[in-house]
């Protein structure tokens, strides 16, 4: 009798797992095949790529924005590429572990990883043991941008960027600004902002967006560097004094840009996907077309905009040129940081 119960319990668990597995593995792919029977001709050109499932590696925690983005794309990718796309995680070192793995993978297009700009530029410049070089990652596409904005609390005496600059000039180094991480996109934005305005503000790094916002709401810092999506969620709590997009940001129409307020600063974090250097051009092209098709999907564009992102559709060549241009901009700044 007891043995029976034991076996029963085990069977139940196996059954559950099996169910979850079947649906996880074949669900979206099977759906996709039914929907798009005619698209085979245009993607099958590059020597039949892809022949088997593709791995899409995420260098950040499950549930992070890179992961959410990949999960949004997964069913579309499976539909367009006619194969399953397996999302795995390689976490650590602010993405460095995942990108060094990508750099060492076989360049056949069956392994790609999400990339973040400017992370992939800054890490090899600043860490001697980052484990990869920027040019070892061949960008396929950049599909999303998150402008960085500057906010104060509602009860702050600072109303505009001008107020802030005046206050900071009066008492150099006494204002504090919270941001995510050291030598990251937000940190660089902070340094560029200081340089272009000639003021000094103490940058306080935090370990993630949630910790930054919690501490800022608790009154521990005067200013907050935030990604647009977070700023959109908190637009009633914060007063946004400037945003790093080149034009007014769709989701935050009332927030002026830095440029409008005479500070030549555009800053943001871009998300894309890359394959190892040396991947054949035709293979990159197949992946590029797939990502660009998803980027043009009106539903995807609408969702991204509502969540506070700026949808982008940069192809392989454009992404590469963009990364090169940013690297040229950051190199002198980094050289100043390192004595």
């Amino acid at each position: 009798m007891r043995r029976m119960k034991q076996i029963g319990a085990l069977l139940l668990i196996i059954l559950l797992m099996g169910l979850a597995g079947c649906s996880a593995g074949s669900g979206p792919a099977a759906e996709g095949k039914g929907e798009h029977p005619g698209a085979e001709g245009d993607t099958g050109s590059a020597a039949g790529f892809p022949k088997h499932p593709i791995t899409y590696s995420i260098p950040f925690d499950p549930g992070g924005q890179s992961d959410l983005e990949a999960r949004r794309q997964q069913p579309h990718l499976e539909r367009i590429l006619h194969t399953s796309v397996v999302i795995t995680y390689k976490i650590g070192g602010g993405g460095a572990v995942g990108w060094s793995e990508l750099a060492g993978k076989k360049p056949d297009g069956y392994f790609m990883a999400g990339i973040n700009v400017p992370h992939i530029i800054l890490q090899p410049l600043l860490q001697k043991d980052a484990g990869y070089q920027t040019e070892q990652l061949e960008p396929v596409a950049i599909f999303q941008s998150t402008p960085v904005g500057l906010a104060v609390r509602k009860d702050s005496s600072i109303q505009t960027l001008e107020d802030l600059i005046r206050l900071a000039k009066d008492k150099p180094g006494t204002l504090t600004a919270a941001g995510v991480g050291t030598y990251t996109g937000q940190h660089m934005t902070h340094l560029l902002f200081e340089k272009k305005t000639g003021i000094t503000i103490q940058y306080i790094p935090f370990t993630g967006a949630a910790a930054t916002i919690q501490s800022f709401l608790g009154g521990n810092t005067d200013l907050l560097w935030g990604n647009s999506n977070d700023l959109v969620s908190y637009k009633d709590e914060f007063r946004l004094i400037a945003i790093g997009s080149s034009e007014r940001f769709t989701a935050l129409p009332d927030t002026p840009t830095f440029v409008e307020q005479d500070v030549e600063l555009t800053a943001g974090i871009d998300r894309g996907v890359a394959v190892p250097q040396g991947t054949p051009k035709e293979v990159i092209q197949v992946l590029e077309m797939a990502f660009l098709e998803i980027a043009a999907d009106p539903d995807v564009i609408r969702q991204m905009t509502e969540e506070g992102f700026e949808p982008k559709a940069m192809g392989a060549a454009e992404s590469k040129a963009y990364i090169e241009q940013l690297r040229a901009e950051y190199e002198p700044l980094v050289a100043e940081l390192q004595p």
Partner: peptide, 14 residues
């Protein structure tokens, strides 16, 4: 075999 299948195909651990 059981745990290999569980990890590899259900939890997609490479």
């Amino acid at each position: 075999g059981f745990f290999f299948v569980l990890f590899k195909y259900v939890f997609i651990v490479p």
